[in-house]
């Protein structure tokens, strides 16, 4: 989640970069790369593609930051770039691609951190969580691109509906409709798993 302090720090880095301090961009990258990666991954469901999009996004940001006037937050501006790149990639690849196509066993080969089991780790619980996450990813795949973007921005990135609308380039009521439909669809799919948990 982005606090206003983070947003201020980002804008400060942008200002320093615009004044010619190239190192400020590295700071921006470090501040946003992990969260942005999670966001892109939630949209595209592929480790390599998410990394490629994130790199291209940072390159575009590097080139365009001189023209950034701070009318919105850096994160909003940057996520809009990422959304456009993701849409381009999905369009190029066609609708036949399979989102979230890798299993947790492949994570380590692709560079994802291994989760080290602690003393409270229970295989049955872990398996159940893994299953829930797989079902959630499956439900995300079934959403339309706009609904998935809206849902991810609102609940995974913790943005306000107004910010979601700004990033998606639509009005607040439209963004609300996307979010509502996405939440309802996921609730419908995840129903049996959620009832069991609660």
């Amino acid at each position: 989640m982005t606090t206003s302090a983070d947003a201020q720090r980002s804008l400060e880095c942008v200002r320093r970069f615009q004044e010619g301090e190239k190192a400020a961009f590295d700071e921006l990258v470090r501040m946003h790369q992990r969260q942005a990666y999670g966001f892109v991954y939630s949209l595209i469901g592929n480790v390599e593609d998410a990394a490629d999009i994130l790199q291209e996004g940072f390159l575009r940001a590097y080139e365009g930051l001189g023209r950034f006037r701070g009318e919105s937050g850096f994160k909003t501006w940057f996520y809009r770039i990422l959304i456009n790149l993701t849409r381009d990639m999905l369009r190029r690849r066609g609708r036949s691609r399979k989102l979230f196509s890798y299993s947790l066993d492949e994570e380590d080969e692709n560079g994802a951190a291994k989760s080290v089991p602690d003393a409270t780790w229970r295989p049955d619980k872990a398996a159940q969580e893994h299953e829930c996450e797989s079902v959630l990813n499956g439900a995300l795949c079934e959403l339309s691109d706009r609904q998935r973007e809206a849902f991810s921005l609102r609940y995974f990135q913790g943005l306000k509906t107004e910010e979601v609308a700004h990033i998606l380039g639509c009005g607040v009521p439209t963004a609300k409709v996307h979010i509502f439909r996405a939440v309802r669809h996921i609730g419908r799919i995840m129903g049996p798993y959620m009832d069991g948990r609660s």
């Binding site: 439900a139 609940y155 996921i186 609730g187 995840m190 959620m194």
Partner: peptide, 11 residues
């Protein structure tokens, strides 16, 4: 459904 959806987002 909405409550389940919100709960799922927390997962």
């Amino acid at each position: 459904e909405i409550r389940r959806g919100l709960q799922a987002a927390g997962l």
